[in-house]
Amino acid sequence: MSGPTPDQRMPNARLLKSRVFAFAAAIAALTGTGNVAAQDFSFGWNPRSGDIWIDTQLDDVNRYGSRYRQPFVDEMVRYYGAPRELVSTLLVERNWAPGDVYYACAIAQILGRPCRYVVDIWERDHGQGWGNVARQLGIKPGSAEFHRLKRGFVPTYDRWARPIQIDEDLYRDYPDRARKIRSRDEAKRGNEKRHADNGRGNNGNGNNGNGKASRGKKAGDKGNNGNGKARGDH
């Protein structure tokens, strides 16, 4: 009895390959370890919050939420009052960016409204950017509510044990961190100044000193020659 022909083996090989890819995709979705590009999100990725620091943090929230799915979901549920089913649906089925999920729930918390309320508004008006959506909801740049929104990133990052560079607007809220940042910046400026001073000394002063010494030696030689001749004439 002969074995399967090459043509008979090929469908089985293709089926096995497709199953392997499907299994890998499922694992990535469950563990949150897959790399998600901005164009893969349902709304793309362009937060336009009106604040560069917030945009930077939301971009980092994307990286964290895509890689560490379960801790991200837990944070939204435990500290922002979002239903677990809603967060999971937004991330997996509706393909929201983690940064959008975080900001929607954070704004809702400031307003005292359910996260779903801001989610529905963002789905409708996401083309305007988060800055305009927040303004329509009464959270304007420079307001106390906007400041609370910025400040909220810090405890979340602390719970994630993730480093965060606080904005100058938050220095008064976190004076110990502000002192460390100022000390580090002063030390950096001091090092840069010392390097600049050393560079000027090597390139300029040292050469000028050598040049003056050389000119002085030549002048002395001429003087000795002149004096010697005068003594010889007498």
Rank of each mutant, 00 (worst) to 15 (best):
M1K: 13
S2M: 14
T5V: 08
T5D: 07
T5R: 14
D7G: 11
R14N: 14
L16H: 13
A29H: 10
A37N: 10
A38T: 10
Q39R: 10
Q39M: 06
S42W: 06
F43H: 12
F43P: 01
W45Y: 14
D51H: 06
I52V: 15
W53A: 00
Q57C: 13
D60Y: 08
R63V: 12
Y64Q: 13
S66T: 10
Y68L: 04
Y68V: 01
Y68T: 04
F72R: 01
E75M: 10
V77S: 02
R78G: 04
R78C: 02
G81I: 07
A82S: 09
P83R: 11
P83H: 05
R84L: 03
E85P: 06
S88V: 11
L90C: 03
L90M: 09
V92I: 09
E93W: 00
A97Q: 04
P98W: 07
G99A: 00
G99F: 00
V101Q: 00
Y102H: 05
Y103H: 08
A106E: 05
I107R: 00
I110N: 02
R116M: 09
R116E: 15
Y117Q: 09
V119H: 00
R124I: 08
D125R: 06
G127A: 08
Q128I: 01
G129T: 09
W130N: 14
N132C: 11
N132H: 11
V133T: 09
A134R: 03
R135N: 01
R135L: 11
E145P: 06
H147C: 02
G152I: 03
P155F: 00
W160A: 03
Q165K: 15
D167K: 00
E168T: 15
D169P: 04
L170G: 08
P175C: 04
R177N: 06
I181L: 09
S183P: 02
A187L: 12
K188A: 13
R189F: 07
R189S: 06
N191K: 13
N191R: 15
G199T: 13
R200D: 06
G201S: 15
N205I: 07
N205H: 12
N205K: 13
N208W: 10
N208S: 14
K212F: 12
S214D: 12
S214K: 12
R215V: 05
G216M: 08
G220F: 13
G226L: 08
G226C: 07
G226W: 09
N227A: 10
R231N: 15
G232C: 09
